[in-house]
Design a protein around this nucleic acid. Sequence first.
DNA 1: CGTTCAATTGATCAGCGTCAAACTAGGTGG
DNA 2: CCACCTAGTTTGACGCTGATCAATTGAACG
Lengths: 236, 236
Amino acid sequence: MRPDEHPEIRQLSLFKNIAETSFAYLMRGAYLQTFPPKVDLILEGENCDFLYIVVEGGVELFSSWNGRSTTMSVVRPLSTFILAAAVKDAACLMSARTLKKTRLILLPAVDVRRVLETDVAFSHAVITELAECYRGLVTNTKNIKMRSSFERLAHYLLRRLAESNSECIVTLEIEKRQLASYLGMTPENLSRSIKKLEAHGVKTNGTQFEITDVDDLRKLVKPGHVIGEFKSSAQG
Amino acid sequence: MRPDEHPEIRQLSLFKNIAETSFAYLMRGAYLQTFPPKVDLILEGENCDFLYIVVEGGVELFSSWNGRSTTMSVVRPLSTFILAAAVKDAACLMSARTLKKTRLILLPAVDVRRVLETDVAFSHAVITELAECYRGLVTNTKNIKMRSSFERLAHYLLRRLAESNSECIVTLEIEKRQLASYLGMTPENLSRSIKKLEAHGVKTNGTQFEITDVDDLRKLVKPGHVIGEFKSSAQG
DNA sequence: CGTTCAATTGATCAGCGTCAAACTAGGTGG
DNA sequence: CCACCTAGTTTGACGCTGATCAATTGAACG
């Protein structure tokens, strides 16, 4: 890959402040590839050879055990994923698959670790990124342990609303079954919970959600007690 | 604090490879303090002024929301906690309190961030530590989302057994109500689950657990599919 | 030796998962 | 362009896991 091929990734917080030579070194070994939907990228348990960057499309991080399976995170452009395993040169704890047609940059993990040794700015960026991933997961865990599935759904909508440009419209970019799994509930239960939302100022139409009474939702979610609730979700 | 006051903390992975001057700088500003049981050290939402090291005793990391509360992690000697918030200079996402009489080292977070800028070895140690914390939490989340409460208990016992010296004895070092909260269940349910364990080769006597049939437990837990299951728990 | 709080036990109930069936939408081939 | 097929979604009925409530037992500590 040429270093100037995707100028926008130079602006990622991971690379923004690193030396030009470090960036060039990383790009020299990088692959830019486009994958069809539903392609397995990573199988949990396998060692981690690349750090991934989502340029376009979307990637689901999930885990399977004993016939069960759960969506851990959804990674959208421009974000990296599987950073923790890459820097530790360890087995991946999550599997990854594309949600739709997706363009990815693959940085060989050895190169990442190499640059880590020479470029202090990169080290600091990795520290910040890992800390954010960690804190995102902490918030996630608190959610699962302290809120009901219905409250988690309301919380999710408020989070997506805060991220969006709109005042009151949220559009799901993933299938409901995957959202259900991410929220730790069954598709059936999600379907019923969405119905229940209508009594709390949310009109739905397929993947469109119109929040007509934000305050009502906030009453369910009671955010603000916990700082960081509406920040990023984890994907390290 | 004198740099040579607690030689064992020099051996912590966070400090093992850092420069002597960095370590001295950190120690110069450090406080060594002993706290009684059940003392609140950190209130979530407040900014993080220190990085903590547990020298003796134990600390519970927990979170509260809307009248509910949950134990997120238990930190034992010699470990650090609240590293992520300290390096990010951000609000803590978890509260902390001592479980019993506990000796702690408090490193001013500004000093930590200062050393981060000058000492590459320290940066790398922080990266490793954060990555481990993150991966511990990933495992935790997978546990909560994919295993039943009974399976989580069995898994917990096997984990503690792997950490202990004994072939078959596990001794709880926390109250059962806290274990229940950590595992995401009620004390009543934990009590009943412990009873159920007797049918799977576990004899109990108060806080003592004797695992007489490890294979039976393993059948419940089915570990090994997910690498890293028996490593550390998160506490960043 | 009494006070206090954790742990246990029993009874009940609710949230949510499971199973099954009907419905809908998006994509494909005739 | 439409019929069809497949897969996701919705709806209903039912059952189980685990929470709640209440009462008792047990253990730690002054």
